[in-house]
Computed example of a mutant assay.
Amino acid sequence: MIKSIKQVRDDFSQSGISIAEWARINNFSPDLVYRILKNNKVPLRGESHRIAVKLGIKEQKYMD
């Protein structure tokens, strides 16, 4: 199930794990994760896209 950015932010609030900690655990730049969660647009490519997929705000698309 795809989540909204608000749902992801709410999940972080309830989980007790910070966004920065999640980013470091998953080898992402905390600044980039914060930017994605502040923006209302879902990223299309690159590391931002990989972060969005990992956060659950975007579905992974596989190319055949």
Rank of each mutant, 00 (worst) to 15 (best):
R35L: 13
Q14N: 15
Q7V: 11
S29N: 12
I5F: 05
I17S: 07
K54C: 11
I51D: 05
M63K: 14
S13M: 00
D11Y: 13
M63Y: 12
D11E: 15
L37Q: 04
L44H: 01
Q60C: 03
S15V: 11
A20K: 13
D10C: 09
V53N: 01
G46V: 01
Y62G: 00
K58Q: 12
V42F: 01
I5D: 04
S48Q: 10
S18D: 13
G16V: 14
V8S: 09
E59H: 03
I57V: 14
D11T: 10
A20T: 15
I2P: 08
R9D: 09
I57L: 03
K61D: 12
E21G: 12
S13P: 01
S29E: 07
D64E: 06
K6Y: 05
N39I: 09
S18I: 08
Y62C: 04
S48G: 15
Q14W: 08
G56H: 06
R50Q: 10
H49R: 14
N26M: 05
Y62Q: 03
D10K: 14
E59S: 02
I17D: 13
G16L: 07
R50N: 11
S4F: 06
Q7E: 15
V42W: 02
D64P: 12
K41R: 10
I51F: 05
K3Q: 13
V33Q: 02
M1N: 07
R24Q: 09
N40F: 02
K6W: 06
I17R: 15
Q7C: 14
S48F: 00
Y34A: 04
L44V: 08
Q14T: 14
K6G: 13
S18K: 12
D10L: 14
D10G: 06
S48L: 02
Y34I: 05
R45Q: 08
I19R: 09
D10T: 14
L44A: 06
S4C: 08
Q7F: 12
I51C: 07
F12T: 06
F12K: 04
M63N: 13
G56Q: 07
D31Q: 09
I36C: 04
L32H: 09
D31C: 10
I36V: 15
W22Q: 05
G16E: 13
N26A: 00
N40E: 14
A52M: 07
N26L: 06
I2R: 02
I5N: 04
V42A: 01
E21N: 12
K41Q: 09
E21K: 15
N27H: 06
Y34C: 01
K61F: 01
A52F: 05
N40D: 15
I36L: 11
L55T: 12
D11W: 04
I19A: 08
K41H: 03
I5S: 04
K58N: 10
E21I: 13
K58I: 03
P43Y: 07
N39P: 01
I51Y: 03
R35H: 09
P43H: 06
E47C: 10
P43G: 06
D11V: 02
A23K: 00
A20Y: 12
K38F: 03
V33D: 01
W22V: 02
M1P: 04
S18V: 11
V33M: 10
Q14Y: 08
K54W: 00
V42D: 06
L44N: 10
R50H: 05
Q14P: 07
R35Q: 15
H49S: 11
D31M: 11
N26F: 01
Y34N: 12
G16M: 10
H49V: 03
L55W: 01
N27R: 02
R45G: 03
P30C: 10
R24K: 08
S13W: 00
